[in-house]
Structures are given as structure tokens and as C-alpha cells.
Measured scan of single mutants.
Amino acid sequence: AIERGSKVKILRKESYWYGDVGTVASIDKSGIIYPVIVRFNKVNYNGFSGSAGGLNTNNFAEHELEVV
């Protein structure tokens, strides 16, 4: 089962992080479509409006993740 702290591989082909491994930061139990927040070591794009980097978290559905 996917739980907080799990290392997961991203299976969503259109994702910037496809094939990468991230760490589960949290799981939303409220029934939303993409409840699993995954944190990565790298950012997906340069930040804007003065922020240092881009996003390094993204929401995924459990079926888009594979525990490694």
C-alpha cells in the first residue's frame, strides 16, 4: 500500500516526472481524484515572481504510482 514516506515511481506518461521516483508527502483521504502528494528532489520548471525554484511536489492518483 502507498503511505506517507513511501518511495514511488511515477507512471503518468504526460507528467514531467514520468519514470522518476519521489517520496509520498501526504495522502488526502477526502475522496479527491488525485489524493497522493509526491515530493521530488528536483523542480519541474524555473520559478516565477521571484521564487527560487519551481514546484517539487505534485498530486497523483494511486494508480499512477508504483511503490519501489
Rank of each mutant, 00 (worst) to 15 (best):
A1P: 11
A1F: 10
A1T: 12
A1L: 11
I2R: 01
I2K: 01
I2L: 10
I2P: 04
I2A: 03
E3H: 13
E3S: 14
R4S: 08
R4Y: 10
R4I: 14
R4E: 11
R4A: 12
R4D: 06
G5Q: 02
G5Y: 05
G5N: 04
S6R: 06
S6P: 04
S6K: 07
K7F: 12
V8L: 00
V8G: 00
V8Y: 00
V8Q: 01
V8E: 00
V8S: 01
V8W: 00
K9D: 02
I10L: 03
I10Q: 01
I10E: 00
L11I: 04
R12G: 00
R12H: 02
R12Q: 03
K13P: 08
K13V: 13
K13A: 08
K13G: 04
K13Y: 08
E14C: 15
E14Y: 07
E14L: 08
E14S: 14
E14R: 08
S15N: 04
S15F: 03
S15D: 06
Y16I: 07
W17M: 03
W17A: 02
W17P: 00
W17S: 00
W17N: 03
W17H: 05
W17V: 01
Y18R: 01
Y18S: 03
G19H: 05
G19A: 04
G19W: 05
G19D: 06
D20H: 12
D20V: 13
V21A: 01
V21W: 06
G22Q: 02
G22E: 02
G22H: 02
G22K: 01
G22P: 01
G22N: 01
T23K: 04
T23R: 04
T23Y: 08
V24Q: 01
V24T: 00
V24Y: 01
V24N: 00
A25P: 01
A25K: 08
A25Y: 12
A25H: 09
S26L: 08
S26G: 12
S26P: 00
I27T: 03
I27N: 02
I27G: 00
D28P: 03
D28W: 05
D28H: 04
D28F: 05
K29W: 10
K29L: 11
K29E: 10
S30N: 08
S30E: 07
S30F: 06
G31E: 13
G31M: 10
G31F: 12
G31I: 08
I32G: 12
I32D: 11
I32M: 12
I32S: 14
I32P: 08
I33Y: 08
I33G: 12
I33A: 14
I33N: 12
Y34F: 10
Y34R: 10
Y34H: 11
P35C: 14
P35E: 09
P35H: 11
V36T: 00
V36G: 00
V36P: 00
V36I: 14
I37G: 04
I37R: 12
V38K: 00
V38Q: 00
R39G: 04
F40W: 01
F40N: 00
N41V: 11
N41W: 12
N41C: 15
N41F: 11
N41T: 12
K42P: 06
K42N: 09
K42Y: 07
K42C: 15
V43A: 07
V43Y: 15
N44G: 08
Y45I: 15
Y45W: 08
Y45F: 12
N46W: 10
N46G: 09
N46C: 15
G47H: 07
G47S: 10
G47Y: 06
G47A: 07
G47Q: 08
F48L: 12
F48Q: 14
F48R: 03
F48G: 14
S49Y: 13
S49M: 13
S49R: 04
S49K: 06
G50R: 02
G50K: 04
S51I: 11
S51H: 09
A52P: 11
A52R: 04
A52L: 10
A52T: 13
A52N: 12
G54L: 07
G54Q: 08
G54D: 08
L55K: 08
L55M: 12
L55T: 14
N56I: 09
N56M: 09
N56D: 11
T57E: 13
T57W: 15
N59G: 10
N59I: 05
F60W: 02
F60C: 03
F60R: 00
A61S: 06
A61R: 03
A61H: 04
E62D: 06
H63F: 12
H63K: 06
H63E: 10
H63V: 09
E64V: 03
E64L: 02
E64Q: 02
L65N: 01
L65V: 05
L65Q: 02
E66Q: 11
E66C: 09
E66V: 08
E66S: 06
V67I: 11
V67H: 04
V67E: 04
V67G: 02
V67D: 03
V67P: 07
V68S: 03
V68C: 10
